[in-house]
Design a protein around this nucleic acid. Structure first.
Length: 395
DNA sequence: GGGCCTCGAGTTCC
DNA sequence: CTCGAGGCCC
């Protein structure tokens, strides 16, 4: 057995002969000629030293456990998300507790349970706070109606503005190379940016005055900004951090309306009629565009960028129209992003999680729990080969 | 040549 | 979430 097989997270047993494989064929979900045995994820114990909060660009606060660093599945882990209030209660995790830790899908740290036998009595019960200072203002937080998540009452705290800037320049939005979180922090701190459009009027001499900004760094940054002046409509929409509107919805809106102006003028009924947009997303859009400050921002941005007009494709005529795909595991011939783009270019949708409305789950090597979810819900599973064939058939 | 930063790789959970 | 690679500053 080659070495890699010992290091893998499981063993696949297969019927070797193609001929027999063809005879055995496939069930609706999986091949009949092979079966995968997964090694259980490696588990270790460590200690919860602190529980802190992170704040996202929409103002949602997420508790994160700071752990005594521990080696698990090939890397040292010192933080793990606790997701939300319910999860903390379910685990009954306290500061000082010893916990069992694993990496979900061998990547994401996941606290499985608390080893209550090891409690000394000195552990501190974690009380869900009424205020999170990070949120700015008075720091009050509130539960989002109908969800487990909490968010800042104030929707414009510094922490959120920061996160929205990170998002604005990120790969899936304006894609400004070399402009990461640390530099955004500095630019905000020095008041060189306060609103998204300020990025497009940054001046060479101001940048040169910043610490660790020599001419080369300044040129690189300004060049990234120049390149970003040309942007596609879906990216432009996604960059605005409108609640409920991410990459996928931005794409649907762009396709349907063709311009930012039309989206801004759309009525509730028109928005809601779009597949993928329901009453909650429609309301979120209306709220956002009816805010004068937001419209002013859009107009200022339009002075600096050219939004590439999108050819309005009639999605309903494309071969994968109405089909939704979920990717799991590693594909050998293309990355997840590439796979997603291909699916979209044929009119399909890509989603992150499996539901009964999912048409296909594409399973690469080492698929995760999404494969199990697919089997449970009776969703068709495509192996990489089947998936590629499907794409090819429609090209 | 050390140190800081970004990026890209892998991908799940809620 | 962490890692390693690579660019740049000092």
């Amino acid at each position: 057995m080659p070495k890699e097989d010992y290091l893998a997270d499981g063993v696949v047993v297969k019927v070797d002969e193609r001929e027999y494989q063809d005879i055995l064929g496939y069930t609706g979900k999986a091949p009949r000629f092979g079966i995968a045995f997964k090694f259980p994820a490696e588990q270790v114990t460590t200690i919860v030293e602190e529980i802190v909060f992170q704040i996202g660009r929409t103002g949602v606060v997420t508790p994160v456990a700071h752990l005594r660093p521990v080696l698990v599945a090939g890397s040292t882990v010192s933080r793990a998300t606790l997701h939300n209030e319910d999860e903390i209660r379910r685990l009954d995790v306290r500061i000082g507790d010893t916990v069992i830790l694993q990496k979900a899908g061998d990547v994401i740290p996941d606290i499985v349970s608390v080893v209550t036998e090891l409690r000394t009595g000195k552990e501190k019960v974690f009380v869900w706070p009424a205020r999170v200072p990070l949120c700015g203002g008075d720091g009050r937080i509130e539960r989002i109606p109908g969800q487990v998540a909490w968010r800042c009452v104030s929707q414009n705290s510094f922490a959120q503005v920061k996160r929205r800037f990170y998002h604005f320049v990120s790969k899936k939005c304006f894609d400004m190379d070399g402009l990461g979180p640390k530099i955004i922090d500095v630019l905000l701190d020095k008041n060189l940016i306060g609103s998204f459009d300020d990025i497009f009027t940054l001046r060479r001499e101001d940048l040169l005055a910043l610490p660790r900004f020599a001419p080369k760094s300044v040129d690189n940054l300004l060049e990234s900004v120049e390149k970003a002046r040309k942007v596609t409509l879906p990216r432009f929409i996604a960059s605005l951090s409108i609640s409920q509107v991410g990459e996928e919805t931005a794409y649907d809106l762009a396709n349907h309306f063709g311009s930012i102006k039309k989206i801004a003028e759309a009525k509730f009924e028109e928005l809601e009629a779009i597949s993928g947009v329901g009453p909650i997303v429609a309301k979120s859009l209306l709220d956002w565009f009816s805010d004068k400050n937001n419209m002013a921002l859009v107009n200022r941005l339009l002075l600096h960028v050219r939004v590439e007009s999108l050819k309005k494709a009639d999605i309903s005529k494309l071969p994968l129209a109405g089909k939704s795909f979920v990717l799991t595991g590693t594909l050998s011939s293309l990355s997840r992003d590439e796979a997603g783009q291909k699916i979209r270019s044929l009119g399909g949708d890509v989603s992150g999680s499996v539901s009964k409305s999912t048409s296909f789950v594409v399973a690469g090597e080492n698929p995760g729990s999404k494969l199990a979810a697919a089997e449970k819900l009776g969703v068709s599973v495509l192996k990489e080969g089947d998936f590629l064939k499907k794409l090819k058939n429609h090209n």
